[in-house]
Design a protein around this nucleic acid. Structure first.
Length: 883
RNA sequence: GGGCGGAUAGCUCAGAUGGUAGAGCAUCGCCCUUACAAGGCGAGGGUCACAGGUUCAAGUCCUGUUCCGCCUACCA
């Protein structure tokens, strides 16, 4: 509910654009290799040009931005290189859809016109996502923005291709590949996603040509039988003993095919006999090679049956499946049909069922490339974080298979190979050759195929820095410091960058590979358009502000776990933003242009306490960022800022800031307050850049440079003071004890009470010295010190260390209530005591546990015993007055 | 079929190197105490999935089991 005071709350509208423009104007994100400083570089995982910002990007980009801003503030020579990916199939699909709306196909336009059209689309509508990254606050060096199809990168692609080809690491050949009949292109194995699909297993009888016997085969794709050229059984399968070599009649086609034996056949599956369709199955293809069987292609590029399919020619493959089954039934050759759950490959771009098909394609020989890429991780040149992903990486790399890199689409890097019309040889050159390298003929035709988009992506970490030229950028920023990405493209992209990076530069492209989780919806479901559960990051930013959104992502980014995004979470952190904003207002109320930021010689106990705590949080935040434990960093910042700084420190120092305070005290207090608060603001900058810059600029100091220039807070060990932290901890506990009593006994907050502290003089010394704090934060009228002989009759009591906190509440006290409260305390202390005593009475514990642990238990035991006896006695006192 | 991850408060999750179970949200109570009600103060709530084992000591290490996810694979 929006109250009328909402104008007092933090409103991020307007300030985000303002400061982003300010940073751009100041060139803060622009890297200059000539400038000094240790290099820190990241290349962005380039989003598709067709893309628009989703949660995955938002998380990915936020984490990178934290790293970049942190390193920027550390004064390193920092580069974050942005750009987009041409996304071959995805982009082509987008433009094809636009054409379809005009009633045209890409074939109507022809290749050249179509590609022109895609470029036009790219110029007009591509890259919206980059604007959205700016909205997120991404501190990219936009002057270095690259596109995988721009001139430099295309050059790098051709160069890489030629070098690999000449080393024999790229080859062309006829193999079974995954074919998408909708996209009409080959796909790599990775681009096929398998989905569990309900289908049927058909058992088909293949009669022997001579004799009365027959062989029954099982298949999930009966339409492919039209292309069968054999039936195979396992050589050791005695069911078929003596029958291998027989000739079968291929039903529906009336073609004679042999019964062969091959070790690949699993005797347990189906009937133990497999139909062999070399043109449409990878296994069958291999079998056919071994047995020199012919190959008959019965499904064409668009998924229709070819002329080889006899009566079924021209039918769609799925219609054909039904027709084949009907026909088999009619002929009495369908033995049975079982429901069958199996994995069916789908095109990862358009979800069409993929058809394995035999065709001529280009491949990368991956084994020789994989070996050094494996070694780089094994030997620690590149670190994978969190390390459990290493295993996945090795698993895949160890079993890597050759990579089909040619695509029969038009949008992409055309393969730099020219086929000779005269001698048939292929010439591969970086620049278009004039004549055939083998026969000298000028009758050359460039290869029609383009490269898999991931081929250019694989070069991204160095192609963007100028490779193959030896540029200053390349020597300065390569290898990059970290790659931040989701695990979903570990194989697609990371593994391939590792291979190509090492192959072409001799060095692994990253020091650290940081794998983050997936962002899911509040119920843990993967966000998808079809599910309709997509949370739009832009909408979240509109509603809660970018900083709140960023902080949410950071706070939830625990290693190795998926993130559930929900409004509640963002709202909570939006409140945190407001808290910081309000704290800023408070600080501004109390400081002015004259306020020094120098810490005074003499520091109050409270100041020493906050400074000591501050060192800890600085340490935690820095370590968190450096170890990619973003959530730990975020939590430490949150906890300290809200609960220690705002809830305790600010409340404790208010009197020293008031006009009634001693002027010197006041001046010093302002200085410390400002200093501490500015440190907090600087500390938070990588997470919440807009709010921190806004506050930074609003603090006194005239027209200021960006907070990015202030240096990142560093731990000053001199300021850490464990004694002060302990003393203050006690004081805070006493305050909490009073508050607890008041609250439990329903004493109105407005009611001032007397607080009696009972204990030895030396134990009370610190409290006596800082009594004012206690009085105010506990809302006490006065604090009275009592010696250990004092008997708290008619007092509500609590025990804090060696001190008893007593509230004389005669007339107000509800003795039932107080008895219940005390009993609870007694039970709690008693339970703990029995655990500790139990351990200590175990002599093996005393003998084996480290001395410090035993000692800690001993003193804990003493404390608890003392506490328990005090509590029990007080409980007894109260019980006397029970009604 | 292999591999990985998860199972901790009502919900969502933290809990490096084993040593007295934490946070946020939600819940309950009291408060508009002039930085902040997008707030303050206080409270309740957990046999850390189950069964064994190692250890003086296990949420944490080992083994097994059960349920969830995910990745991967040439059972047609």
């Amino acid at each position: 509910m929006a109250g009328q005071d909402t104008d007092k709350a933090y409103d991020p509208k307007g300030i985000e654009e303002k400061w982003y423009a300010f940073w751009l104007r100041g060139g803060f994100f622009h890297a200059d290799p000539a400038r000094p400083g240790e290099s820190y570089s990241i290349v962005i995982p380039p989003p598709n040009v067709t893309g628009s910002l989703h949660m995955g990007h938002a998380l990915n980009v936020t984490l990178q931005d934290v790293l970049i801003r942190y390193n920027l503030m550390l004064g390193r020579n920092t580069l974050w290189l942005p750009g987009t990916d041409h996304a071959g199939i995805a982009t082509q699909n987008v433009v094809e859809r636009l054409l379809a709306a005009e009633g045209k196909s890409r074939q109507d336009l022809g290749r050249e016109k179509f590609v022109e059209r895609v470029w036009k689309w790219k110029e007009e509508s591509g890259g919206v996502i980059l604007r959205q990254l700016k909205r997120l606050g991404a501190s990219c060096d936009w002057e270095r923005e690259r596109f995988t199809m721009d001139e430099g990168l295309s050059r790098a692609v051709r160069e890489a291709f030629v070098r690999l080809y000449r080393k024999g690491l790229i080859y062309r050949g006829r193999y079974i590949i995954n074919w998408c009949p909708r996209c009409r292109t080959a796909l790599s194995d990775l681009e096929v996603s398998y989905e569990e699909t309900r289908g049927a297993l058909y058992f088909v009888r293949y009669p022997e040509l001579s004799g009365r016997r027959s062989v029954v085969v099982a298949t999930t794709r009966p339409e492919t039988m039209l292309g069968d050229t054999a039936v195979a059984v396992n050589p050791a399968d005695e069911r078929f003993a003596g029958r291998v070599g027989a000739t079968l009649r291929l039903p529906l086609m009336d073609r004679p095919i042999p019964l062969i034996s091959d070790g690949m056949v699993d005797r347990e599956f189906g009937t133990g006999a497999v139909k062999i369709t070399p043109a449409h199955d990878a296994n069958d293809f291999e079998v056919a090679r071994r047995h020199e069987l012919p190959s008959v292609r019965v499904i064409d590029e668009s998924g229709r049956m070819t002329g080889e399919a006899g009566a079924f020619a021209g039918m769609d493959r799925f219609a054909c499946r039904e027709a084949v089954v009907e026909k088999l039934k009619a002929e009495g050759l369908l033995v049975k049909e079982e429901p069958y759950l199996h994995n069916v490959g789908h095109c990862y771009r358009c979800r069409t069922v993929v058809e394995p098909a035999e065709s001529i394609q280009w491949f990368v020989r991956t084994k020789p490339l994989a070996e050094p890429a494996i070694r780089a991780v094994r030997e620690g040149e590149t670190r994978i974080v969190p390390p459990q992903w290493e295993k996945t990486y090795f698993e895949w790399m160890d079993n890597i298979r050759d990579w089909c890199i040619s695509r029969q689409i038009w949008w992409g890097h055309r393969i730099p190979a020219h086929h000779c019309g005269d001698c048939g040889q292929t010439t591969v050159e970086t620049d278009p050759p004039e004549k055939c390298a083998s026969c000298g003929s000028g009758n050359l035709k460039q290869e029609e195929d383009v490269l898999d988009t991931w081929f250019s992506s694989a070069l991204w970490p160095f192609s963007t820095l100028g490779w193959p030229e030896a540029t200053p950028d390349l020597s300065r920023y390569y290898p990059t410091s970290a790659l931040v990405t989701g695990f979903d493209i570990l194989f697609f992209w990371v593994a391939r960058m590792m291979m190509m990076g090492i192959e072409f530069t001799g060095k692994a492209p990253f020091r650290d590979v940081v794998i983050h989780a997936l962002v899911r919806d509040a119920r843990g479901e993967k966000m998808s358009k079809t599910r309709g559960n997509v949370i739009d990051p832009l909408e979240v930013m509109d509603r809660y502000g970018t900083d709140a959104f960023r902080f949410t992502l950071v706070a939830l980014a625990a290693q190795g776990r998926d993130i559930r995004m929900s409004d509640d979470r963002v709202e909570g952190y939006r409140n945190f933003m407001n808290k910081i904003f309000q704290a800023g207002r408070f600080v501004r109320m109390h400081v002015d242009a004259e306020t020094s930021r120098e810490l005074p010689e003499e520091l109050s106990i409270v100041d020493r306490w906050i400074l000591s705590r501050l060192q800890r949080v600085i340490d935690e935040v820095r370590r968190g960022i450096e170890e990619y434990r973003f959530n730990d960093a975020g939590q430490a910042f949150y906890q300290f800022t809200w609960h220690e700084f705002c809830d305790w420190y600010v409340e404790m120092i208010k009197p020293s800031l008031s006009p009634e305070a001693d002027p010197l005290v006041r001046r010093n207090q302002r200085a410390v307050l400002l200093r501490v608060f500015e440190t907090i603001i600087a500390l938070g900058q990588p997470f919440i850049p807009f709010l921190t810059e806004e506050i930074w600029q609003s603090l006194p100091g005239g027209k200021r440079d960006s907070i990015l220039r202030q240096g990142y807070p560093a731990v000053d060990p001199e300021k850490t003071d464990v004694d002060v932290e302990e003393d203050m901890g006690h004081l805070m506990e006493v305050i909490r004890a009073v508050r607890n009593i008041r609250s439990e006994l329903n004493v109105s907050p407005a009611k001032k009470v007397e607080v009696r502290l009972k204990g030895k003089v030396e134990d009370l010394a610190f409290l006596r010295e800082h009594e004012e704090i206690l009085r105010r934060l506990a809302r006490a009228e006065r604090v009275v010190h009592k010696d250990p002989e004092y008997i708290p009759v008619k007092d509500a009591t609590a025990v804090v260390n060696d001190i008893e906190v007593c509230l004389p509440l005669a007339g107000l006290i509800d003795f039932d209530q107080e008895a219940r409260r005390l009993r609870k305390e007694v039970d709690k202390a008693g339970a703990e005591l029995s655990v500790v005593t139990g351990k200590l009475s175990n002599e093996r514990f005393v003998a084996n546990a480290p001395a410090d642990i035993v000692e800690a238990h001993r003193s804990r035991k003493d404390d608890l015993e003392a506490k328990l006896s005090k509590l029990s006695r007080n409980l007894e006192l109260v019980t006397r007055y029970l009604s």
